[in-house]
Computed example of a mutant assay.
Amino acid sequence: MSASRVRRPTEAAALARTVRRPEYSLPAVFADMTTAHRLGDREGLRLLACRAVRATSLEVGE
């Protein structure tokens, strides 16, 4: 008896999403950082700083 693999409809989409690198608009990230700073949102500011670094750095191996 062979076990057949059950395909899930979102499986291919999830795998495709992990391969693609998200594109961030750097001016929008900076605007959001300004808003987070004015609101005193340290966690949001830290997350947006990481997003800005990702937007400006190359992928590993490129």
Rank of each mutant, 00 (worst) to 15 (best):
V29C: 02
R8H: 12
R7V: 11
M33W: 02
D41F: 09
V19T: 03
A14W: 03
R17K: 12
M1R: 13
R51A: 15
T35N: 11
R54L: 12
A49V: 07
E43C: 06
S2Y: 04
T34S: 14
A55N: 04
F30L: 14
A31M: 01
P27R: 01
G44Q: 02
A3Y: 13
E43W: 00
L26E: 15
P22F: 04
V60E: 11
A3W: 12
A52V: 06
A13H: 10
V60A: 08
E11T: 09
R17T: 15
D32R: 08
R51H: 10
R5H: 08
S2Q: 14
P27Q: 00
T10Y: 06
A16F: 09
D41N: 13
A36C: 10
T10W: 06
G61D: 09
S57D: 07
R17Q: 11
R46T: 13
Y24L: 10
G61F: 00
T56Y: 06
A49F: 08
P22Y: 10
A28I: 00
D41G: 05
G44M: 03
G40H: 03
R38N: 08
L15V: 01
L15P: 08
P9R: 13
A36H: 06
L48I: 02
M1P: 01
A16W: 13
D32N: 12
A3H: 14
T56S: 07
R17I: 01
V6F: 09
R21A: 07
L58Q: 07
S2C: 11
H37K: 01
L15F: 07
E23A: 06
